[in-house]
Design a protein around this nucleic acid. Structure first.
Length: 648
RNA sequence: GCUGGCGUAGCUCAGUGGUAGAGCAGCGGUUUCGUAAACCGCAGGUCGUCGGUUCAAAUCCGACCGCCAGCUCCA
């Protein structure tokens, strides 16, 4: 019998007989490992544990904790769900059923029947029953013709469509129990590995993601090797719901969304406005230090501006209908840039003036589809912390690096340590989406890449994610739901300066074209604050908290002392309230705890006679009496340093 | 925009064909109180809107509007 060499991740090498399977290798290492093994990575490809390896290879046994292991597990779970669905609804036609970040789905066509919550429960029960049979997932190679014959007999148009694109190739089928699916695999060894099952939701999804195609029903589910892991996962989903910025925004009276004003048009309530203005003030100060020049521009502009910029032709569908004024058409501005370009062009510029950095918290209006609106995170009116920087080519890279540094500083200050950056480039295969000359794009993509390297940005490239006028660096953060949101953005633009004929006079006395950098660290204040609310679960750091402290007198005998403290703290700039209602202190504490106010200051006989405050910190409880002057100093310091944690 | 689910008091929710309910919030009193809910009372609703079925509709049917999830989209 011939032998093959298997290399392991730690570099060690072992000899096995030819046609050894992943499972046998795992067994050879330890029985425990073979029990936990879900799949095997062979030369970087994920394989079934039962598939034989017939030549030298680098092999890694994949368990639940490995990305590939989890994906295989969920992929197999999707097949199990399909089997359950088919047994309950025999006429079902199947689309695709892949693993996703947190579970799996299967797109199915049930004809006229719309799945109900009861159906989901039935399918779930059936899955549990099918899983407990503990039958193997088996792989079978078939000729293309045989595969087509099988699905013709089954009358499954979706699988036939998929097969159409695999013409002539060897096709793999996977079987488990009574279910057979067209599938690349790989799969876990047997259904018995799937112990805890939860079907989460059903939603419509266009076949192959194309809105011209039929809409199928997409069933989402998640499975785990133990009940406990499922419970943890479900708890996390609940936690995400608790943190939902729309719910907290209402409870904490931060903002209001009402159909009476219109979908996606948030109204900022006094408490939310404090958060927003504090953030603005923070960025304004940072920008002032860095030589930005504040400007203010109107909310509408002549449509000619957007025809020149290209926004109108490119994004006609996502803008509000223009309004006619004295024979001219005006657009609610979808972007601030054209206005800023007019400010730049208002007088001749010298090379000595550059870079010029115009900054504005500019509110823009975009007509998002109704189904897309989502609280503050996706709105129809939002404010961009916009800046347009007009630079010479030789200043571009330094300017980009300094912008990246500012954004990193802003994120870090706000506690977003875990963000990633994407270099968003155009898609060479889909050029009609992108405007401007080829050589300008090449140059801009090069500039961005170099700046990212120089700034030591941990980045990845997103093809086709560019703006129509230029490539971008997008800053993305992950929220509690595990979703990634795009926040800040930096864009290099050679196209707009051309379209708007922007110029400066160089040292040679001739006219030159500046490069424009568009940038917004927050991106949209609405979206940023929405994500921040979820990030902090409504418990803002002291410097951002709408109410920073509240005084709770025990009885009305201490109101005078409390008023005195309030006046002193207010004069020092603290946002402090006095709860002088006729209620017991326990009642007041409960209420202010739910309002997530950082500090509660209880005052009674003891405090008023010793000039102290009994400090209670949100979620931490009573910290005892503190000298009032000392406490004020600490508060001011915590605010000044924008500390993310509370001090005593 | 598409598919599905949901719309009852300011909020959270109960009410499956027969006189619209509870808790919290609000308002009026009483209580003067030490770290997460004192007590009594009052007020508050065209049951999203419009139409239909019925002796009778929050409840059944239809259309529309809004919200939520997902899909498509996202300068």
């Amino acid at each position: 019998m011939s032998k093959i060499n298997i290399t392991f991740p730690d570099g060690s090498l072992r000899e096995f007989r030819k046609r050894v399977t992943g499972l046998e290798i795992a067994q050879g290492i330890s029985p425990g490992l073979s029990k936990e093994a879900l799949a095997v990575e062979v030369n970087g490809e994920v394989w079934d544990l039962g598939r034989s390896i017939d030549q030298d290879a680098t092999v890694r046994i994949l368990k639940w904790d490995d990305e590939g292991g989890k994906a295989t597990y969920w992929h197999s779970s999707a097949h199990l769900m399909a089997e359950a669905i088919e047994s309950l609804f025999p006429a079902t036609k199947f689309g695709i059923g892949p693993p996703i970040e947190n579970g799996f789905y299967y797109d199915i066509d049930l004809g006229d029947h719309a799945l109900t919550a009861d159906d989901l429960a039935r399918i779930e029960t059936k899955m549990t029953e099918l899983a407990s049979r503990d039958v193997p997932y088996t792989r079978e190679e078939k000729s293309w013709t045989d595969a087509v014959a099988y699905f013709k007999k089954k009358k499954d148009p979706y699988k036939l469509e998929l097969l159409d694109e695999l013409k002539g190739e060897t096709i793999t089928f996977y079987h488990q129990g009574n279910f057979t699916d067209l599938c690349y695999g790989p799969h876990i060894p047997s259904t018995g590995r799937i112990k805890a099952i939860k079907l989460l939701s059903v939603a419509g999804a266009y076949w192959r993601g194309n809105e011209k195609n039929k809409m199928l029903q997409r069933v989402y589910g998640v499975t785990f090797p133990t009940r406990k892991e499922l419970d943890v996962h479900l708890f996390r989903l609940e936690e995400a719901k608790r943190r939902d910025h729309r719910k907290l925004g209402q409870e904490l009276e931060l903002f209001l969304l009402t159909p009476k004003v219109g979908g996606g048009l948030p109204l900022w309530l006094p408490k939310g406005t404090i958060v927003r203005e504090t953030l603005e003030q923070f960025l304004r100060e940072e920008q002032k230090k860095r030589g930005y020049l504040p400007v203010v521009t109107p909310h509408i502009g002549n449509i000619g501006l957007y025809k020149t910029s290209g926004h109108y032709p490119y994004y006609k569908e996502s803008q509000f209908t223009p309004v006619e004024v004295e024979g001219d058409l005006y657009l609610l501005k979808p972007m601030n840039c054209p206005h800023h370009f007019q400010i730049y062009s208002a007088r001749p510029r010298s090379y000595r003036d550059l870079p010029i950095r115009l900054a504005e918290f500019g509110t823009v209006y975009r007509y998002e589809q109704s189904g897309e609106l989502s609280g503050l995170i996706r709105a129809r009116s939002f404010t961009v912390d916009d800046s347009h920087m007009f630079v010479r080519q030789d200043q571009l890279k330094d300017e980009l690096v300094s912008v990246i540094t500012l954004i990193q500083y802003v994120f870090k200050t706000l506690g977003f340590e875990d963000f990633r950056t994407r270099l968003s480039f155009r898609d060479p295969k889909n050029m009609e989406k992108f405007g401007g000359k080829e050589e300008l794009w090449v140059r801009a993509e090069k500039d961005i890449t170099e700046a990212a390297q120089e700034a030591n940005l941990d980045h990845f490239v997103g093809i086709g994610e560019a703006a129509f006028y230029g490539p971008k660096i997008d800053f993305m953060v992950r929220d509690v739901l595990g979703r990634t949101w795009q926040l800040g953005t930096v864009q290099v633009d050679y196209v707009m300066p051309e379209r708007f004929g922007l110029e400066y006079v160089g040292s040679d006395g001739r006219k030159h074209r500046p490069v424009v950098i568009h940038r917004a660290p927050f991106g949209s204040l609405e979206r940023f604050i929405g994500i921040m609310i979820e990030h902090f679960a409504g418990e803002f750091p002291l410097w951002l908290a709408p109410v920073q402290a509240v005084l709770l007198p025990i009885t009305d005998q201490y109101h005078t002392y409390a008023e005195d403290v309030q006046r002193e703290f207010k004069d020092a700039g603290i946002r402090i309230e006095l709860d002088d209602r006729n209620e017991k202190v326990g009642y007041k504490i409960r209420e202010w705890e739910t309002k997530k106010v950082p500090y509660m200051l209880v005052v009674g006989e003891k405090e008023s006679s010793s000039n102290t405050l009994s400090v209670r910190i949100h979620k931490q409880g009573d910290r005892g009496a503190v000298d009032r002057k000392e406490f004020l100093r600490n508060l001011l310091k915590t605010i000044e340093t924008k500390s993310l944690t509370l001090q005593e």
